[in-house]
Design a protein around this nucleic acid. Structure first.
Lengths: 227, 227
DNA sequence: TAGATGCTTCGATTAGGGTCGAACTATGAA
DNA sequence: TTCATAGTTCGACCCTAATCGAAGCATCTA
């Protein structure tokens, strides 16, 4: 009847509670096994298996077999982007899964969004990088300037290694809690893993919260002063 | 079980074919009545009414009563943004509702995305505005420069009037066909309606196609030269 | 007031899909 | 080879939600 892509099918895939739980869990960035995702979703392994094959069929996931384990992660940044958008809508219409608790505050401050830093600190980092001229918009794309290249290298990130990766280096991602952009792409990932490597930050394994050490937050504020 | 917004509920709302058809129709930007939407979705009026109250309850729609008619439009740009994102995913996974036909080509060239110009011409306009320095990124937000203000005023757009509106003036919106940004926000709307006012462009009432006149396309290319 | 039109509500039907138990396949360990 | 663990497939059950007819409410026209 109508032209254009079949939006209902994808949305229906995300629309089942069990599958939505799995996808939300995968927003943590870590690849998870079928059993782990079953646990997350609160269903049996058979059910989870069925859901995962549907999600995979819809192009939302990227499966990888390793021995007798099967790992799933989100297919790409676009998927993560849409999921964040949906979270924004859900949060906007005032529906939270649980009442706002202390954990939510932590989530708002710093959380992982499919591998990179999101929340207040995420947007602060993004704004600061722009303001310092390390990152500029080139039309629609984000571009790391010469000064930016020096900056990240100084921090101990291997740019040459990152560029080998076929995925985009810099990319903006909309934050559902902040309603502002933060940095995604392989550079976004690299930042977060560097913070972890320096022991500035640590991911909670079950929630998506990222907790910074006292020293870590100080170093962070030094590198990325608020605008 | 998990923290964060209830993504499944919103996604499930979009995930029903009838509702997805309605939302897609509303991406055209025009407010539509219950009966019109029922027609679009291919269901009876009762069914449509039920669907619409659910969508409204989920915060996706903005209803307005006018006499014995009830008009619905999308609640805001965020909703349109998520829908475009979903279309991108659906298109990416190779699912089109119908085989690609001649109408699709027209859709790719210029279509309406919830009120503003999308497609090739949309991204061309956006890139051109950036390149000419009429539009700049200010952190995460888009900003109309002094030269840009002169530019749009010259074109006959009343900026003072637009600013009275509470919604954002400039905003970027990701295009599912082009995978690039185009201009949304009240300025984006104003551009499109100005093009219509000047008889440069005309919207098809049933599809989302925007057709430019020969003169219109010439003026457009003059104002927004390709980069 | 009477009639027509647009929409909502109620109730009954029905189909699609989520769920899990049980059986089966595949990989790894001993 | 034998056992254990991870995941898939099959089949049956069951529940939600989409659907529409019929009746009711609201608004406009004459």
């Amino acid at each position: 009847m109508k032209e254009g892509p079949d939006i209902a099918h994808v949305a229906a895939l995300i629309g089942d509670p069990a599958r939505a739980n799995m996808l939300t869990a995968l927003m943590g960035g870590k690849a998870l096994t079928v059993s782990e995702l079953a646990e997350e979703a609160g269903v049996t392994i058979q059910t989870a298996s069925s859901h995962l094959s549907k999600l995979d069929g819809g192009g939302l996931l990227r499966p990888r077999k390793q021995g007798r384990h099967k790992y799933f992660s989100l297919a790409n940044d676009d998927v993560a982007h849409v999921l964040e958008g949906l979270m924004g809508l859900a949060a906007g219409s005032g529906r939270l899964r649980k009442r706002t608790g202390p954990k939510d505050a932590a989530l708002r401050q710093a959380r992982v969004c499919y591998n990179h830093l999101a929340g207040e600190l995420g947007t602060q980092m993004f704004d600061s990088l722009i303001m310092q001229g390390h990152l500029v918009f080139d039309g629609d794309d984000l571009h790391l300037t010469r000064s930016g290249q020096a900056f990240v290298t100084e921090l101990g990130i291997d740019l040459a290694e990152l560029r080998k990766n076929k995925s985009t280096l810099c990319r903006e991602c909309l934050d559902w809690s902040e309603r502002r952009s933060h940095l995604a792409g392989s550079l976004g990932r690299a930042f977060l893993s560097r913070f972890e490597g320096l022991s500035w930050a640590k991911r909670d394994q079950t929630t998506r919260v990222i907790s910074f050490s006292a020293n870590g937050i100080a170093e962070f504020k030094r590198l990325f002063p608020a605008v």
